[in-house]
Write a protein that binds this DNA or RNA. Structure first.
Lengths: 89, 89
DNA sequence: TGAATATTTAGATATCTATCTAAATATTAT
DNA sequence: ATAATATTTAGATAGATATCTAAATATTCA
């Protein structure tokens, strides 16, 4: 749902997480260490990003590895472009 | 702030308001009548859209006329495109 | 098996948000 | 000036959200 995408993107911490994941995949721990909040809080944010399909997760041993999921960004881009197109009519 | 944009867009009612304003400018009353909520509630949503610079308002007699503000959409588009560009590096 | 490590889940709390009703403000018309 | 109309603001409330601590789960290693 589009609302979930926007809601997920409305939080600064989550946007920063996405920015970090542009460079490379990261474990939950690596992500969490970049912030001053607890790991539990970051885990919560990661769940929201997962639910919004903005990231995907893969278990690798003890680690959960997170990576960027570009599909939804494309959907968002499509929504915006379409929005502007109709506006031009 | 980008967060305000996403926050404003995360609400379904507000997205619908923006959709309506693509077709033509509207008074607060006209907008409110399209929803089953109270005028007060719509007024609240309109304020959030105004604060996020997604719409602008002009007083005309007894009416407040709302219109779409495209600048922020462009900013958003730019953010998204830039996001994807860095990702491709 | 049991300890150590990585991560998530549960439960609590404080803040934020969407909504309502009622009141306030501003404009027009009688 | 008073009433009617359009809109917003104030105050209240229920539900959502970000954060914390503590506990649970899963995996690795000695």
């Amino acid at each position: 749902m589009l609302g979930d995408t926007f809601k997920a993107l409305s939080d600064e911490t989550r946007r920063e997480i996405l920015m970090m994941l542009r460079k490379s995949d990261m474990t939950a721990g690596e992500i969490a260490e970049s912030f001053s909040t607890t790991h539990a809080t970051i885990s919560h944010h990661l769940k929201i990003l997962r639910d919004a399909n903005l990231v995907s997760m893969e278990r690798q041993g003890q680690n959960n590895i997170y990576s960027l999921n570009t599909t939804v960004f494309q959907d968002l881009l499509a929504w915006l472009v379409n929005f502007k197109k109709k506006e031009a009519d």
